[in-house]
Design a protein around this nucleic acid. Structure first.
Lengths: 232, 232
DNA sequence: AGCCAAACCTGACAAAAATCAGGTTTCCCC
DNA sequence: GGGGAAACCTGATTTTTGTCAGGTTTGGCT
């Protein structure tokens, strides 16, 4: 992890930068710390308390928690413009969470003291953060329901759509960032083997194409039908 | 559902009332609508768009979503001081949600227009709502993980603790409000039969006592051990 | 080039959980 | 007090899902 000299955040991408008064931006520029992470590096880990918020400038990140021996649950994927470290703004007991870069990632960090001052001085920032949390909460509620009620097959199908949606796809429709089956399982809340078998079956039937590490959704409708039945 | 004349909200219980300037309270008093609901009545249902926020003055509510034929998922239980209707503050597509009274419940409602004005005029209200959402989000993330990774047995055990925690217990330790096994299943994300079998087994082993509709946790530690193993 | 770890692959098996198909009891409403 | 719906109870069965125990391939590092 290296503190950046070239190509810092241009103060135009994240919630914070977009919501503050111009004169506050100068204080943001002074208070922030910009970090670079390479693929596979941890931005923060379960052991330590997360202080402050991280705003992703570019790259992609998975937010996850280890679970028992050798399992991990992926809470979400985050990319440019997203915020990491919800807990910063909530006092008290936080559940231990890690964030790991999925590709070269640049982000900036602001500490709690500065954020507190920002909220007081910029009502629209507090408002935006409230909106952001409310939106996240809604998504979380949907996902809770899905994890609780949908069979593994549907959850894995949905995970593929989420990955494509959040992480993006390239010109040929393949996921922009190769995601391991282990990570797919971690997001869908199932085992590696279950994911493997489903992907193999779908590839055989042409619903998806698997080219080495890369995955592409072919038959959008058929794959979505596996979810839809249970969304009724 | 009847608009209340006697015993309205005393303007001291909910986030809204506690965070606003005194002079704003007068406007709150004028803008709110107080409602009473009897046990079993719907406060809002999946069909309609929820407009505005509901603040629970007294009583208990379950927030739920129907799922396929005859199933429902319970998102959360809410009691005095809690807020219903997150979606109000988020623009756009909301997932359909219902709220049903579990006992006689009094709550007040404020529409979006008024809330928008409130946020602008009371920075501390926006701040409080942000905190509230952030806290809810953290809980939701924990629950997502639990629903994804824990076996049914642990989820049901945890549900019992949540119900006792949120809905409260009486002098003898029984849940203050009788919750059906169907609702327990709905919260734990499993079937009625699974809940039934677990409760029967636990009652046989003395971990819980079941007296008609009422449930009490006896052996706190043993029951918690069924969860804890998987929280490591 | 060789080594190691991580990811990938596969089938057999076991366990967990849901479904089904019958009941009985309780509670509310008329 | 009678009728009907909802909740409760139970065992048998089937499906789903996870576990285990072996592999192979890939990719980075020295």
């Amino acid at each position: 992890m290296v503190t950046a000299k070239p190509d810092p955040c241009a103060l135009d991408r994240c919630v914070l930068c977009r919501c503050c008064n111009p004169e506050w931006s100068e204080r943001v520029a002074k208070s922030r710390t910009v970090f670079h992470y390479e693929k596979g590096q941890d931005i923060f880990t379960e052991g330590k308390v997360v202080q402050g918020l991280y705003f992703i400038y570019s790259g992609a990140v998975k937010v996850h928690q280890s679970w028992g021996p050798g399992n991990e649950f992926i809470l979400r994927f985050a990319v440019s413009g997203d915020v990491l470290g919800h807990r910063a703004l909530v006092s008290g007991a936080d559940s231990p969470i890690s964030a790991t870069a999925l590709e070269r990632t640049t982000l900036c960090h602001l500490d709690n003291t500065f954020l507190g001052a920002t909220i007081k001085a910029n009502p629209s920032f507090a408002h935006m953060m409230m909106q952001l949390y409310a939106t996240e909460l809604q998504k979380a509620e949907k996902r809770m329901r899905d994890l609780a009620m949908m069979p593994v097959k549907s959850r894995v199908a949905e995970t593929l759509f989420v990955i494509r949606e959040v992480l993006g796809s390239d010109a040929e429709g393949y996921f922009r960032i190769p995601v391991t089956r282990i990570d797919i399982a971690g997001y869908a809340g199932t085992t590696y083997e279950a994911v493997f078998r489903l992907l193999t079956a779908w590839a055989r039937d042409g619903l998806v194409t698997i080219a080495g590490k890369k995955i592409r959704i072919n038959e959008e409708e058929k794959l979505r039908a596996l979810i839809q039945y249970f969304t009724l």
